[in-house]
Amino acid sequence: MTKPKIYTMSFAKVYPLYIAKAERKGRTKAEVDTIICWLTGYSPEELQEQVDKQTDVETFFAEAPELPSRNLIKGVICGVRVEDIEEETMKNIRYMDKLIDELAKGKKMEKILRDSS
Rank of each mutant, 00 (worst) to 15 (best):
A62W: 10
I36F: 03
E45N: 01
Q50Y: 01
E58D: 05
A64V: 03
F60I: 05
F60H: 05
G41N: 06
Q50G: 03
E49M: 08
E63V: 11
W38F: 15
T40P: 00
T40E: 13
D56S: 12
A64Q: 07
D56C: 11
A62K: 11
E45L: 08
G41K: 06
E63N: 15
T34Q: 04
W38L: 06
L39N: 02
D56G: 04
P44S: 02
D52V: 11
D56Y: 08
T55M: 10
G41W: 10
K53Q: 15
E45A: 12
A64K: 14
T59N: 10
T34H: 02
Q50N: 06
G41P: 12
S43G: 07
W38V: 02
K53E: 14
G41A: 09
P44T: 06
L47Y: 04
I35N: 01
A62N: 07
I35K: 13
I36D: 01
Q50C: 14
E63G: 07
L39E: 04
V51G: 06
F61W: 14
F61L: 10
I36H: 01
V57H: 03
A64M: 11
E45F: 04
E63F: 09
S43D: 13
V57M: 13
Q54T: 10
G41T: 12
I35M: 00
L47C: 00
V57G: 03
E49F: 03
L47I: 07
D52M: 01
V57N: 11
E45H: 05
L47V: 04
E46G: 13
V51F: 14
F61D: 08
K53D: 15
L39G: 08
Y42W: 11
Q48A: 09
A64G: 07
V57C: 14
A62F: 09
I35F: 09
D56M: 08
P44Y: 03
T40M: 14
I36L: 11
